[in-house]
């Protein structure tokens, strides 16, 4: 019974992602016709149209899906684990550390050497954050120590990022850093996809494996443990999964907020609030939201290179305010 409506929800969201993906492929400054674009996408004639479609628009759309999927899934998982609807992927400090790693390559100029340098250092930053989390929160600590450790790491990474900005050698580096931190899907290639995909895929598998454990946590940690769930293992599988997802996402597109916060919140009523069912729904919802925001970024101000992170915040904040308003009304 509930299984069918879950299938319907996931089917509906998948269709939405496909539609938005198609729209994303058809929008761009080059202004090709729809039939030309689609023909060029599937036939490698090597002309300008197929180059634009296959090397610029396709990776952009695919990356939007991957990043949205990762952030939506991570947000749903963290909210489920912490049993708190305000949790979001940035909470454990991995995304700010990945941003720090990336920013250092821009400041020192080594990012200009090779495309791969920036995302690679982003991933290194994310990995360092995970090691710090392990050291700070310990192998057995509860969810509270995890949050505190995450906040501490976020604060430290944020401070160091400010320091890097402060010490940037010239105004160009500064503006490059600031624009990168706003987050964008522009000018991404298949190389970015191949860097991020293994980590993201690993993260997806790890997070989805925690589904049943997250359900039992509805009853609290004691009851979950008595139902045979190893909470220590659950916690680190989840942290590793979220870190892989958000670390990889931040490394390739910069910091994109609100997806992991808003999407689980919107979709929770549709899955009967069950964390395990929210995971796939939120992942697909995240993909749809990032695609939509990226389309909006290109449609609203086509000439100004509007940044995805900015659009997302502009879309996300009012949605969030509306949700708060609705929650307040429900509580009255």
């Amino acid at each position: 019974m509930t299984g069918i409506s879950q299938m319907r929800l996931l089917g509906g969201l998948s269709v939405l992602v496909l539609l938005l993906c198609t729209a994303s492929l058809l929008i761009g400054p080059a202004g090709f016709s729809i039939s030309d674009s689609l023909t060029a996408l599937f036939t490698g004639t090597g002309d300008a149209v197929s180059l634009v479609m296959q090397e610029i628009r396709l990776p952009r759309a695919l990356l939007a899906i991957m990043v949205g999927f990762s952030l939506g899934l991570s947000g749903a998982a963290l909210q489920g684990y912490l049993r708190n609807p305000l949790a979001e992927p940035g909470l454990i400090g991995v995304s700010s550390s990945a941003a720090l790693g990336a920013v250092i390559t821009l400041q020192t100029g080594i990012a200009a050497q090779m495309m791969i340098v920036l995302p690679f250092f982003g991933l290194v930053g994310a990995a360092i954050a995970v090691v710090l989390l392990l050291l700070l929160a310990g192998p057995r600590g509860g969810s509270l120590t995890l949050i505190l450790a995450g906040i501490a790491i976020s604060a430290l990474a944020g401070a160091l990022t400010s320091l890097v900005l402060n010490l940037s050698p010239n105004p160009f580096a500064t503006s490059e850093i600031v624009f990168w931190m706003l987050g964008s899907l522009a000018d991404r290639s298949f190389s970015h996809i191949w860097i991020a995909l293994p980590f993201m895929a690993l993260g997806w598998v790890l997070i989805l494996s925690t589904a049943r454990g997250l359900d039992t946590l509805i009853l609290g940690e004691d009851a979950a443990a008595s139902l045979g769930i190893n909470l220590g293992v659950l916690r680190w599988v989840l942290v590793a999964g979220v870190a892989a997802c958000t670390g990889a996402a931040t490394s390739v597109v910069g910091a994109i907020g609100f997806v992991g916060l808003v999407v689980p919140h919107i979709l929770r009523p549709f899955v009967g609030a069950q964390p395990s069912r929210l995971l796939p729904a939120s992942a697909l919802g995240g993909a749809a939201l990032v695609l939509a925001a990226d389309i909006a970024a290109r449609l609203i101000l086509p000439d100004r290179d509007l940044k995805l992170g900015v659009v997302m915040a502009i879309i996300g904040a009012p949605i969030f305010l509306h949700l708060i308003y609705r929650t307040r009304r429900a509580e009255l």
Partner: peptide, 15 residues
């Protein structure tokens, strides 16, 4: 063994 803890936690509005 089935264990019913004292603190009656229900984290989400599930059915």
């Amino acid at each position: 063994v089935a264990w019913l803890p004292q603190n009656r936690e229900i984290a989400w509005p599930v059915s």
